[in-house]
């Protein structure tokens, strides 16, 4: 009975929203510019964005933060030397590890590995998940049945256990191996979100209008479905990014992720665990970095979700 239900629109249900919606003045605004407007006023976003920018700069140009070499070991002088909390941004700020390497320098240089893994995995996962979800959602039928079952199978694999299985089959654990292992297992949640979002969008009249004009499937998918379906995917991807940072750390800690000589927070946490009793800072400092980064991305995801979710307006 859509014919009559829609006719109702003139007043009632949106009575509260109506005055807002009828604003036909002012400069052009789209969902994204609206969201940006909201974001700038969100303390959650401002804090997380500052943190993330700081971390990104650290990952791109660690030399700006420290002159020390994270791999330079001076056992004789610095074996498990305690942090000097007052020496901001100095080599000995966070103390030295069991091999006499500057923990501060290692934390700064470790950002690159951790963030690279997380960002690249997120990009790969978003692309793969969106493509799979969009095809399944748009075409439906057998394509959907097959793709959805494949998604379910991957979804059923416990993430860390699956990554362990994949990673142990590789001799050499370079950074790209970790990236591929995480991406291979991580795309399913994005695919599900994308599929659900596409299922709603494809019902929209403007998609039907494009079909009625004779638009090709590619055009419908890229110009009409994708831009309208992408918002929830971005939210999930941002939150997942934090998860990949901790996943990398977890795998490295378990000794099957990144390994020496790669500098990463996970590797440092792993090596720090042995001195937990006598020098806890060796473990705690990189752990705190992981927590802050994960938190920053989850906060960003939350802020973006709030800004994009029209229901909360």
């Amino acid at each position: 009975m859509p014919e009559t239900l829609k006719e109702a629109t003139p007043d009632t249900p949106g009575a509260v929203a109506a005055p807002v919606a009828t604003a036909a003045v002012g400069k052009p605004r789209s969902l994204w510019s609206d969201a940006w407007h909201d974001l700038r006023r969100s303390p959650l976003f401002v804090v997380s964005a500052i943190l993330i920018i700081f971390l990104l700069v650290m990952a791109i140009a660690p030399g700006l933060f420290t002159g020390a070499d994270p791999r330079y070991a001076d056992l004789a002088h610095h074996y498990l030397q305690k942090p000097k909390w007052g020496n901001f941004f100095q080599e000995d700020w966070f103390g030295y590890d069991i091999q006499g390497r500057s923990i501060y320098a290692r934390v700064v240089y470790g950002a690159r590995a951790s963030i690279t893994v997380a960002v690249v995995v997120t990009v790969l996962v978003t692309i793969l998940g969106t493509v799979v979800g969009m095809l399944a959602g748009y075409f439906g039928g057998w394509i959907d049945t097959i793709l959805s079952r494949v998604t379910d199978i991957f979804f059923g694999v416990p993430f860390i256990l699956g990554a362990m299985v994949v990673l142990t089959s590789f001799e050499e654990r370079k950074i790209w191996v970790v990236i591929l292992a995480l991406a291979f297992l991580g795309w399913t949640s994005i695919a599900r979100v994308a599929r659900g979002s596409v299922l709603t969008i494809k019902q929209a009249d403007y998609v039907m209008a494009a079909k009625a004009l004779g638009a090709s499937t590619t055009r419908i998918l890229l110009r009409h479905i994708l831009p309208n379906a992408i918002a929830p995917v971005i939210v999930v991807a941002t939150i997942a990014l934090g998860g990949y940072i901790s996943a990398e750390a977890t795998l490295s800690f378990l000794g099957i992720g990144l390994a020496e000589p790669t500098v990463s927070w996970g590797v440092d946490i792993s090596s720090g665990q042995e001195q937990l009793r006598n020098a806890a800072f060796v473990l705690i400092i990189p752990s705190v970095m992981v927590s802050i980064t994960v938190l920053a991305f989850i906060m960003l995801g939350d802020a973006v979700r709030n800004a994009l979710d029209p229901k909360l307006r």
Binding site: E3, K6, T9, S30, L31, A204, D205, Y206, M208, A209, A210, R223, H224, P227, N228
Partner: peptide, 10 residues
């Protein structure tokens, strides 16, 4: 029918 859903908002 529905001018609110028949135009792509993006």
């Amino acid at each position: 029918q529905d001018p609110y859903t028949s135009l792509n908002p993006r």
